[in-house]
Computed example of a mutant assay.
Amino acid sequence: MSRPRRESTLVTAKVLRGWRLPEPTGGKDSRGSVLVVGASTETLGAVLLAAEAALRSGAGKLQVAVPSKVAPHVSISLPEALVRGLPSTEEGAIRASSAELVLDLAQKASAVLIGPGMADEAETRGLVEALLPELEGPVALDALGLAAVTADPRCMHHLEGRAVLTPNPTELGIALHTGPDDLAEDPAGAARELAEKSRAVVGLGGETSWIAAPDGRLWEDETGGAGLGVSGSGDVRAGIVAGLLARGAEPAQAAVWAAYVHGRAGERLAARVGRLGFLARELPPEVPRVLAEVDL
């Protein structure tokens, strides 16, 4: 599929310094609250990574909704969080019928992230489809949380741009019902296409990150490196997006900053640990250092 080319803005520290994040004015309430919905009994780590990254990005309060079977483990691993256990399938995935139990937390949160570590496409899609109409945003969808967008991109339209999608290349191809060759030929165009269809910001991870806004703006981020291609890395990036949204960043700003912060965190670890072999769990502690580095 041929897509028209469009000029992009290269993301640099200088660009970000001209697009400052909202500055907190008081205690934790001024920095917003973030709700992370996700996990299964086999992929609990994804939520832990995303949740920590959200706090490391500056969010003031953390809430997490996970399958009830793993809720006690989350409470121990994330002492900063309010943890809600949700009914799950026999295989350990969150049931779609859990939407009512999530909704009161979601409506009170400054930002909601849905998807990290979720399993069972049908149940996840049902949960997201039940939640989205009740939310005003900002909302971030990651991983299997994108299943509702794959089925119908219009499900995001009522949010009027107050949403961020954070697919990896495989997930973007699925969402657009396109093959990997077409995506590899023009990843920027593919990101822009999904942004236009969903009316949401799309932050595409990969060797080069592309951030597309529904109004046609496009950013290119070349930070990072091969070491970021590791399990859990995308969950960290999604958590950074959610944390910045909770702080009050507008969706495109949160996605652009997250791409750069995630990439620079990887570069810092590559310099200290090695180009390959650092772990996703080592990325969140680097986030405040990168944010401070940009502020210099």
Score class of each variant (00 low, 15 high):
residue 63 Q to R: 15
residue 60 G to Y: 04
residue 64 V to G: 09
residue 105 L to R: 00
residue 78 L to G: 03
residue 101 L to C: 02
residue 85 G to N: 06
residue 113 L to S: 02
residue 128 V to D: 10
residue 134 E to L: 11
residue 104 D to Q: 05
residue 74 V to Y: 06
residue 74 V to L: 05
residue 84 R to A: 10
residue 81 A to H: 03
residue 109 A to Q: 04
residue 117 G to Y: 12
residue 87 P to S: 13
residue 60 G to E: 02
residue 94 I to T: 14
residue 88 S to E: 15
residue 80 E to H: 07
residue 85 G to W: 07
residue 75 S to G: 15
residue 111 A to P: 07
residue 116 P to N: 03
residue 96 A to D: 13
residue 76 I to N: 06
residue 130 A to W: 12
residue 117 G to I: 11
residue 107 Q to E: 04
residue 64 V to P: 06
residue 120 D to K: 14
residue 82 L to T: 08
residue 124 T to H: 01
residue 79 P to K: 11
residue 64 V to F: 11
residue 132 L to H: 10
residue 106 A to D: 00
residue 115 G to W: 06
residue 115 G to E: 04
residue 78 L to E: 01
residue 110 S to R: 08
residue 67 P to E: 05
residue 93 A to T: 14
residue 83 V to K: 00
residue 75 S to T: 11
residue 117 G to T: 13
residue 92 G to F: 14
residue 106 A to P: 01
residue 102 V to M: 03
residue 84 R to I: 07
residue 133 P to F: 06
residue 106 A to G: 02
residue 81 A to C: 06
residue 134 E to H: 13
residue 134 E to D: 02
residue 97 S to V: 14
residue 97 S to G: 14
residue 104 D to F: 06
residue 90 E to D: 13
residue 62 L to F: 01
residue 80 E to V: 09
residue 84 R to Q: 11
residue 78 L to S: 02
residue 133 P to S: 07
residue 132 L to S: 09
residue 80 E to M: 09
residue 115 G to H: 03
residue 121 E to D: 10
residue 103 L to N: 02
residue 106 A to N: 00
residue 116 P to Q: 07
residue 125 R to C: 07
residue 108 K to W: 00
residue 69 K to I: 08
residue 127 L to Q: 09
residue 61 K to M: 07
residue 133 P to H: 07
residue 96 A to V: 12
residue 124 T to P: 02
residue 78 L to C: 00
residue 89 T to S: 15
residue 59 A to Y: 07
residue 63 Q to Y: 13
residue 100 E to T: 07
residue 135 L to Q: 05
residue 110 S to I: 04
residue 118 M to H: 05
residue 63 Q to S: 15
residue 126 G to W: 08
residue 74 V to E: 05
residue 114 I to A: 01
residue 65 A to D: 09
residue 68 S to K: 09
residue 98 S to F: 04
residue 130 A to H: 13
residue 93 A to R: 13
residue 111 A to G: 09
residue 105 L to H: 01
residue 131 L to G: 10
residue 78 L to Y: 04
residue 125 R to K: 11
residue 119 A to E: 15
residue 58 G to Y: 02
residue 132 L to V: 12
residue 65 A to R: 06
residue 71 A to D: 01
residue 66 V to P: 13
residue 81 A to L: 01
residue 118 M to F: 10
residue 95 R to K: 15
residue 84 R to N: 05
residue 96 A to P: 08
residue 68 S to R: 11
residue 79 P to D: 08
residue 60 G to H: 08
residue 116 P to E: 06
residue 115 G to Q: 05
residue 94 I to P: 09
residue 71 A to N: 05
residue 69 K to P: 03
residue 125 R to G: 05
residue 102 V to L: 03
residue 116 P to I: 08
residue 119 A to P: 13
residue 77 S to Y: 05
residue 129 E to N: 13
